[in-house]
Design a binder for these strands. Structure first.
Lengths: 230, 230
DNA sequence: TCTGTCGCTTGATACTAGTCAAGCGCTCGA
DNA sequence: TCGAGCGCTTGACTAGTATCAAGCGACAGA
């Protein structure tokens, strides 16, 4: 398989593997593949059975659902997160499709190996639940957000969150606006109008650059909830 | 603690515990409580830290989120499911509140005990991920539903699902209509209007009784997706 | 350099679902 | 048995978003 010894250090750093013994990790890696994909590469399609567990080592992956031609982005996964873990553990069809957004490096572990290792290695098991629980909480937040906030509020909160992660009041959108719109559960048109509204609340948007001129004002509009933050 | 020996058989039957050894289960139960709650009893409140993992042995529990006075039901949990497992595993604040809908019997396992047992007992660990993965998939379905279907379609699909589970084209609503409405992400008023629309598609609603006169017609309207079913 | 494409924005309009208000009918307690 | 309260329904109106359509501007390929 295409996993080279030199790749192991970056893998070992992933939270999922941190507690595992050298030997156990080596065994796992011997059965796995680390692969590079270009941007916009289709990885999995909704409805199929999981052959592998995927872990984003580098890049970004778009998880989306389809329904008569319409697409909605359910989550966007950045390193060092896995995706479709739930389907793998239960050996049930994927509920969503995945494609890379940017060129990405992805670790693929055969599903059966994941399940076997889970039973044998409690450090790995701990990593798996932790990861799964994290994902669970992420979808729950998205759902709460969708149900209880207007689309403009969702955008405002997303901007606040991004700025916080970037550690700066100015940052570049890490994805196309239309993708972001879909992730926030709105159309590209609504996104444009929402940004226009936010310009009255301390946000400036020029191309892919977002600048928060008035963090307090924006926060007042967004009414972020401590519990929603990561 | 209030767990009696006579309670153990019904506990043992729960999928979460099925693979555990007698001894391990006995140890776990010695530290747990099985409690009865009346209808509408508050169990946990959003934002607090989890002291216990809760498992619904009998009855039904409403998981809801609040935001300035508004409430939205995120999930309704029936036996033999757990709730707030993700928060317990990660020892992070609950993202939702819970209250009983009907008189319920609930098993409470101290969080720390859950985490400890998880590391020691791989059969229990397997049960935990399985349960968590199931819950994850449930929220994901709700989110997809919310994003990609109209409220009337959601109701239609819910009715089809209920009928299937009931094994009959006629069944009683297991909860108040307003609760169901909230679960489906709509207001009680919209629920009424949606039901009225569905009466043109083969559904009859009298009080708490729902009857599907034309399953094929309803299915055509609801466009259920195989992958969405449980 | 020109031009077609594509992503974004803006405008006009339509529609879904929410809000507010009133009325109906059942249940339960006095 | 009556009346109050509550859950549900219905009507009128509104708000928030989606949809459809057109135009703008940057970038890529000829």
């Amino acid at each position: 398989m295409s996993l080279r010894r030199s790749d192991v250090p970056s893998i070992r750093a992933l939270p999922l593997f941190q507690q595992m013994s050298e030997q156990a990790l080596a065994d796992l890696m011997a059965q796995s593949m680390l692969q590079r994909f270009p941007a916009r590469a289709d990885l999995i399609r909704e409805g199929e059975l999981p052959d592998f567990l995927y872990i984003v080592v580098e890049g970004a992956v778009d998880l989306y659902a389809t329904r008569d031609g319409e697409e909605t982005t359910i989550d966007i996964v950045y390193p060092p997160s896995s995706f479709i873990l739930a389907a793998v553990m239960r050996d049930e069809p994927w509920l969503k499709s995945a494609r890379t957004l940017t060129p990405s490096q992805i670790l693929m572990i055969p599903s059966q190996v994941v399940r076997d290792t889970f039973s044998r290695d409690s450090a790995f098991a701990r990593g798996i639940v932790d990861e799964l629980a994290k994902r669970y909480r992420a979808v729950t937040r998205v759902l709460k957000n969708d149900r209880m906030r207007s689309s403009t509020e969702r955008l405002a909160n997303w901007i606040l969150g991004m700025a916080q992660r970037a550690g700066s009041n100015a940052f570049e959108l890490p994805l196309e606006k239309r993708k972001l719109a879909s992730f926030l559960g709105m159309t590209p048109e609504s996104y444009s109008r929402s940004i226009a509204v936010l310009e009255k609340h301390g946000v400036r948007s020029q191309g892919a650059m977002i600048t928060i001129d008035d963090p307090a004002g924006l926060a007042e509009f967004a009414k972020p909830s401590a519990i929603e933050a990561d």
